[in-house]
């Protein structure tokens, strides 16, 4: 099934590109009518998704592609945003992608928890052509 998004970006897996994607998404979210606090949280969720691809998916390799797509996901009831992140990293069973127990205070392991806390829907799936696909949705509440 073909997909159509308002914005499609391809970045290399370098941490210094995270701010570029955050700024692009924040600008779009502002235009979609999200308030500043929600914009910041959704940008954080995407940042965490990309950081996980860089750190865990590509294990720090900085020359690998990451595709980021986003656009409006309005329903009759409310406005929303739809974000997709795709990579060519090693495939992981989606059920193994989980955040850590928050009672266990230690560095790391917060990214997936943040994504699930901020977004209404977070789905990881292996791509048929290789790599992983992450789909996140959030409506204005």
């Amino acid at each position: 099934m073909s997909e159509s998004f308002e914005v499609e970006l391809r970045i290399l897996s370098r941490p210094e590109h995270l701010c570029v994607v955050r700024q692009a998404l924040s600008a779009a979210l502002n235009r979609y009518g999200f308030d500043d606090g929600t914009c910041a949280q959704i940008a954080l969720a995407l940042d965490e998704a990309l950081a996980n691809v860089i750190r865990h998916g590509y294990q720090g390799r900085d020359d690998q592609p990451i595709w980021v797509k986003f656009g409006r996901a309005d329903t009759a009831q409310q406005k929303g945003v739809h974000i997709v992140v795709e990579d060519l990293a090693e495939q992981v069973p989606p059920e193994k992608i989980a955040g850590r127990d928050l009672e266990d205070i230690r560095p790391g392991g917060l990214g997936v928890h943040i994504m699930k806390q901020v977004m209404d829907d977070v789905q990881f799936t292996p791509r048929p052509e290789g790599g992983m696909r992450l789909e996140m949705k959030r409506s204005q509440s």
Partner: peptide, 16 residues
């Protein structure tokens, strides 16, 4: 102005 979980992790490590 912004911090992600990698920044938070460094603070948690220092706290420990």
């Amino acid at each position: 102005s912004y911090m992600d979980s990698s920044g938070v992790a460094t603070l948690v490590e220092a706290l420990q």
